Computed example of a mutant assay.
Amino acid sequence: MLPVLIFPQFDPVMVHFGRFGVRWYAMAYITALLLGWRIARRLVALGPRVATDLQVDDFLFWATAGVVLGGRLGYILFYQPMAYLTHPWAMLEVWHGGMSFHGGALGVIAALLLFTWRNGLSFLAFSDRITAVVPLGLMLGRIANFINGELWGREAPASLPWAMIFPEAGPVPRHPSELYEALTEGALLLAALLFAVTRPGIRARPGLVSGLFLLGYAIARSVCELFREPDAFIGFLPFGVTMGQVLCLPMALAGLGLIVNALRRPAVTHDLVPAAPATA
């Protein structure tokens, strides 16, 4: 029998500045937003062009607000609504954790709707370029979860070569489910979407990449939930499903709807950037 791995006690603070510090989780968000912004700038330039570089720069603020506000509100509403209703000030204590990807996704969708409406852009075409880089944030975020020693997996056979004991979860070996999610929801989905968005035939069908993202994430997350320990304050829902799997169902349906709609509509062959107003 192989020896079971012991989770290394990482410091959740990456850099200390006296009484203050930068946490790995915060750095994951910052890095993902900055790298995603640079990649998105390149993607919008691919034909048919859907936005200007300046508009991508402007959207960085909107995306940040959507991720943070949506992620926090989603966690409050989906996972612990009563706890926060009885202690409303705790809603602001983001340094104690509590972010939901599904809430963050809704926040970014709301940001995309408002931003594209205000700028006269194609919502679906612009969303395709943005969602193609979202798995980058998922990958870095799950790695940060692993460093923090949180969201660990269910009990695993001790014979599993990578079974790991998380001291805060007791003495039993567990699946390092954070790394499973970093690989599937993150790295693999990112590679698939970047490959898709660089194909001219796929870019010509607005909504197709967004649909692939929603469906791909829903499948990857639902599978990973089979190895992830459900939140203690929720546990398993009826029929042994988890809250994460329940929230993935509407994502999968929406993804399928976008894919079907994109394939049924005529391909776009011209740029979708509104013409700049004439100057005197």
Rank of each mutant, 00 (worst) to 15 (best):
P274R: 02
L256K: 07
W89V: 13
D128I: 06
P206D: 01
A32Q: 02
A196T: 03
I130C: 14
G211P: 03
L189K: 00
I6K: 15
G21F: 06
R129D: 02
P157T: 03
Y25F: 09
P200Q: 08
A192Y: 09
W37F: 02
G18S: 07
E150D: 07
I165K: 07
V50Y: 10
I76E: 00
G120R: 06
L179R: 01
L183P: 00
G186C: 08
L140I: 03
P157E: 11
R129T: 12
V223P: 07
L73E: 03
L35N: 07
A144W: 05
A262I: 01
A110V: 15
L237Q: 04
H102M: 09
S159C: 11
A191C: 13
G18H: 01
A65M: 15
I39G: 00
H270Y: 13
A125Y: 06
A26E: 12
L190S: 07
M99A: 10
F227L: 07
E93I: 12
M164F: 09
P81Y: 10
G120F: 06
A110C: 13
H16Q: 13
A45V: 10
Y79C: 00
T279P: 04
G141I: 04
Y25N: 09
Y84K: 05
M27S: 12
E150N: 02
A110T: 13
W24P: 03
A83G: 12
G71Q: 09
G216M: 01
I109S: 03
E150P: 10
A169C: 11
D53I: 14
R118C: 03
E225R: 05
A252M: 03
G149K: 05
Q80A: 15
R203D: 09
T198Y: 11
W24N: 03
T242K: 12
R118P: 05
E168H: 14
S177N: 01
A262Q: 00
P88Q: 00
F61M: 15
M1R: 15
P12D: 14
I219A: 11
P167V: 01
M164I: 15
V44F: 10
P176Y: 08
S100C: 07
A144I: 06
V56I: 13
F195A: 14
V241L: 14
T131S: 14
A156M: 08
M91S: 11
L272I: 04
G153A: 01
V133Y: 05
A90D: 14
H270I: 13
F146Y: 15
N119K: 15
F115L: 01
V94T: 12
E150V: 09
A262W: 04
V268T: 10
F213M: 08
M27D: 05
A280P: 15
P206I: 08
G71A: 12
E181T: 04
L183G: 06
R23D: 11
F101T: 06
